[in-house]
Design a protein around this nucleic acid. Structure first.
Lengths: 339, 339
DNA sequence: CACCCTCATGAAAACGTTGCCATAACCCGG
DNA sequence: CCGGGTTATGGCAACGTTTTCATGAGGGTG
């Protein structure tokens, strides 16, 4: 149990060979006699020695590390995404650095504030909605980058088709026979979200296709926004019979308002979310699954492929999946919220 | 816009000084004339140069990186914890490596499989419930370690008092006048959890204190377990009037069963969770907040302090907080689930 | 004016690896 | 038995920093 960690020299000494040979063995490089190889391996094990990525990176130029940049770490979505990325990187024996840039973002310098320059082999951004200029700045770091949750032409991206997702969701409600279908979206000043815009567009397109006029209500993100928006909708002179929310958290907020108002779901109002949040299952909320774990896994593997120079598809569109639960149903034939 | 990232030599050349001087400037080391300092700083900025942690770590022995080891990344709890740790490390300009060891854990070698040895300054484990032996193996890595969500004497730990938490929760229900208070716990074969045991003990202690006999039901973790357990409780010849769940997810599962059975909360049965999960707010679930973000922040700062040799308290107990919402109330005076 | 101190600066030796080149040992065919 | 090729091994110079030590320029004091 050495208080100073063993170095390659120690291993070499113990195995009675030179540094070069030890290096070759530990890198699985050819040109070492099997017997010697075994001896070195044993010596390394006995000293529980592992190669310093620091030192090897210095000469190879590879750090064995991939940086993942996320706006936030708390929302459910990012945990799932990170989990996928982590698993993919582990397969390739790469370590994962995580940078949460949250509030820093508004300040101009977050991209350069991150010590990425010589310290990472690749950068994966998750739902960062980077502007063209931010992309360029990040590219300046000089390592490959993969964008998850954002589609940028000319740059490797893994994303879902938000428009198709909400369009499908909307059609589900229309197919049930609803005609008064409202949409609760979000807008935050701190964070401009492309996916937010796309989801609204998908809804609008499906409504237009059915010859109906869209009915969007936009509030601050989070469940509070959903609560307020639903309150507003309930106070309309003729409330909607179905409501689609931009994401599950909003839908859950809306659900709370309905519960308090004594409006039954789906009897009086059908409610739908988007994301397939953990809590959606337990709340029996019909939603659209976007499998962030799978996206993360894909993004991670894509990164590995690019690093190995074996990347083929640089744009990957992940499928979304309608999850039918108990919160949507055909509209009642009688009018009014309370039968 | 150099395709090869700039090195310190380039900066030195551009500023017309030696390597040593550049190094001193960028480390904020004393002994540089203000005018020169400024000149070097500018040169570095223009080349958008950042120090290679790889190279500096090689000589200082510090990597500027802290490893965080978690069993899983997906559950809500870990995102919040990581967020706090990340913020704390960022304050000290340390990078965060994340290792998700999930299933690997059962295999003996996860601790040594981690290439931590020379590649990290400290290790933070989150809810890993390490055995004494695993602790020792991890300590072999030769860097300070901080345990979050686990109390181990002689080792830096940040944790909550699970026993006190459930005891307080139980007393809340007892104070409302309930006498038939059941507890839904979890047990998984893959994962032995100390906190799980402690929470049960807290409940039992509070019940004993009130002279009541405990009524625990143990199922698999997750909301499915909650659903099943609640079904079981409802089929008792005299169902409980209040139920405490080991964590919110279980409580939410139980809530679903109640909803389906048409049993009203809190009118007929009071329901309580533990954790203050995102979804608990939206479901109006009374619960116990354990602020994983704050724990993460504390653990992160403790790590930084230890690294700076300034650690004072190596054991930090984080407070828990009862969050009163709408799912608990005094028991009805009339008997039966349906008034 | 000589002396010693302080302060700013530069030169050079680490740090722990990998890559390249040299060397030694061996095998094979002529 | 000798030349040429292959294969295993060692030596040494990088890689980009920090750190230690040396040097030299001023500046105050006696």
């Amino acid at each position: 149990m050495p208080s100073q960690p063993a170095s390659m020299r120690d291993v070499a000494h113990r195995a009675g060979v030179s540094l070069s040979t030890v290096s070759r063995v530990l890198r699985d490089a050819p040109g070492v006699a099997p017997e010697v190889r075994q001896r070195v391996q044993r010596a390394a094990d006995e000293l529980s020695y592992v190669v310093s990525r620091n030192a090897s990176g210095l000469v190879t130029g590879r750090t064995g590390r991939v940086s993942v940049v996320v706006p936030f770490l708390r929302p459910w979505f990012f945990g799932a995404a990170l989990s996928g990325i982590s698993d993919a990187l582990r397969e390739a024996d790469l370590d994962m650095l995580v940078y949460q840039v949250g509030e820093t973002r508004s300040r101009e310098g977050w991209a350069r504030a991150l010590p990425l320059r010589r310290n990472t082999d690749a950068v994966v951004t998750v739902s960062m909605d980077l502007s063209e200029e931010e992309c360029r700045r990040l590219e300046d770091v000089g390592v490959p980058m993969v964008l998850m949750g954002q589609k940028v032409s000319g740059r490797a991206s893994v994303y879902i088709d938000d428009r198709a997702g909400t369009a499908g969701a909307t059609r589900h409600l229309l197919n049930l026979g609803h005609t008064r279908v409202a949409y609760i979206g979000s807008r935050s000043e701190a964070w401009y979200s492309t996916s937010s815009r796309h989801r609204l567009e998908g809804y609008e397109a499906a409504m237009a296709e059915a010859g109906l006029s869209p009915w969007p209500v936009v509030k601050a993100p989070g469940h509070t926004g959903g609560e307020l928006a639903m309150g507003e909708l309930l106070s309309d002179h003729e409330p909607p019979t179905a409501v689609l929310a931009e994401f599950d958290d909003i839908a859950l907020g809306a659900h709370r308002t309905l519960r308090r108002a004594g409006v039954r779901v789906p009897d009086s109002i059908s409610l739908m979310g988007f994301d397939n949040h953990d809590a959606a299952a337990v709340m029996d909320l019909t939603t659209v699954d976007q499998a962030p774990y799978d996206s993360g896994l894909t993004a991670g593997r894509l990164t590995v492929d690019i690093l190995n120079g074996a990347a083929r598809h640089t744009h990957v569109e992940m499928p979304t999946q309608l999850i039918l639960r108990q919160s949507t149903a055909a509209p009642r034939t009688t009018r009014g919220l309370f039968p």
